[in-house]
Amino acid sequence: MMGSRGVLSIIFDLDNTLIDTAGAGRTAIQKVCELLKSTHVQESHIRDICERFLRKLLQESFDPSEGKTIDDVRIQHWCEALQETPGTDPDPALASRCYYTWKNTRLQALSLSSEVRALLEELQKNYKLLLLTNGDTQTQREKIEAVRCEGLFSLVVVGGDHPEQKPARSIFTHCFESAGVRPQDCIMVGDSLTTDIQGGVNAGVRATVWINAGSKSLPQDSVTPDYTLPTVLHLKEVLAQLA
C-alpha cells in the first residue's frame, strides 16, 4: 500500500539530470584537440585519438583495491589512445597533459544553472532532497564540489562508496534508511533508463521520472518510466499530479 502521505522525498541523479556533464565533456575534448594541435601529433589523427579515449572511458572498469587512482587509469586511457593511433608516439608526458586538460576543463565547465539551483532551493522547503550518483568516489565528489550543490541535499550518496551502485536495490535501501523515508514516499529522477529508472522500479519508489533532454525514443524492452520530461525544470508539474 502506498499510504496517504504523498511524496515526501525526491531522489535525484546528478550527471545529465541536474548538470550538463555531456556538454562539459564536449568542451573538454575540444580543449584537448587544441592542445594536440600544438604538438607533434598529426592533425588528421587528433579526432581519432580523442574518440579512442572516449570509448575507453565508456568501457572503463575501475577497482580502487588494485592500488591505482582513477587519475592513473584515465592517463593510461590517453596513453593507449595515442599508442593505438598509427604514426603517433605514445608519450606518457603528453598523455598526462591530455588527461589533466580534459579533466580540469570538464570540471570548470560544469555548473548548476541558476534555474536548477532555484528549483532545488524551492523544493527543499517541502521535500527531503537526496542525491544518488553512480561512479568512482573521487570523480563524483570532485563534480559535486565543483558545482557547489551538496548543501541543497539532506543526503548525498556516491555509488563508489558502496558495494553496489544503481540499479541495485541495496543502494536505494541505504538511501531510504539513512534519510528515514519509505520507498513509497519517494520519487526517482534521472536520465538513465538502465540505472535511474530501473533502479527506482527495483526499489519500489512511488514514481520514476525520466529526464529525456534529447527527445530519445524509448528503446524496445526498456523499463517504462512513469513520467518523461525534457528537463528537470518541469518537475513541479509531476509533483502537482502526485499531490
Rank of each mutant, 00 (worst) to 15 (best):
L132F: 05
L132T: 05
L132Y: 00
T133G: 00
T133F: 02
T133Y: 04
T133Q: 02
N134P: 14
N134A: 12
G135L: 02
G135T: 01
G135N: 06
D136F: 03
T137E: 11
T137P: 10
Q138M: 14
Q138L: 15
T139F: 07
T139W: 09
T139H: 12
Q140D: 05
Q140P: 09
Q140R: 09
E142P: 09
E142S: 12
K143Y: 13
I144M: 15
E145C: 14
E145I: 15
E145N: 15
A146S: 06
A146W: 01
V147D: 00
V147G: 06
V147W: 04
R148E: 06
R148F: 07
R148D: 07
R148K: 08
C149F: 08
E150S: 09
E150D: 08
E150W: 09
E150Q: 10
E150Y: 07
G151W: 01
G151Y: 03
F153A: 03
F153P: 07
F153H: 02
S154R: 12
S154K: 12
S154L: 13
S154Y: 13
L155K: 11
L155M: 11
V157R: 06
V157P: 05
V157W: 08
V158W: 02
G159W: 04
G159Q: 08
G160K: 09
G160Y: 01
D161Q: 11
D161P: 11
D161C: 08
H162Q: 12
P163S: 15
P163M: 15
P163T: 14
E164A: 15
Q165A: 15
Q165P: 13
K166R: 05
K166N: 06
K166T: 09
P167V: 14
P167I: 14
P167M: 12
A168I: 12
R169C: 13
R169W: 12
R169K: 13
S170L: 14
S170G: 14
S170I: 12
I171W: 06
I171F: 09
I171M: 06
T173Q: 09
T173C: 08
T173D: 09
H174E: 07
H174L: 09
H174I: 06
H174M: 03
H174N: 04
C175F: 13
C175D: 07
C175V: 13
C175Q: 08
F176K: 07
E177P: 10
S178Y: 14
S178I: 13
S178R: 15
S178V: 12
G180A: 10
R182D: 10
R182Y: 14
R182F: 13
P183W: 11
P183M: 08
P183I: 11
Q184T: 14
D185V: 02
D185H: 04
C186P: 04
I187M: 03
M188K: 05
M188P: 02
M188G: 01
V189W: 07
G190W: 04
G190V: 03
D191C: 01
D191M: 06
D191S: 03
D191E: 05
S192F: 02
S192W: 03
S192C: 04
L193T: 03
T194S: 09
T194N: 02
T194H: 02
T195P: 11
D196T: 01
D196M: 06
I197G: 06
Q198F: 10
Q198H: 04
G199S: 02
G199P: 05
G199H: 07
V201D: 00
V201Y: 00
N202K: 04
N202Q: 05
N202E: 04
A203W: 02
G204M: 01
G204V: 03
V205M: 01
R206P: 05
A207F: 00
A207N: 02
V209I: 10
V209L: 06
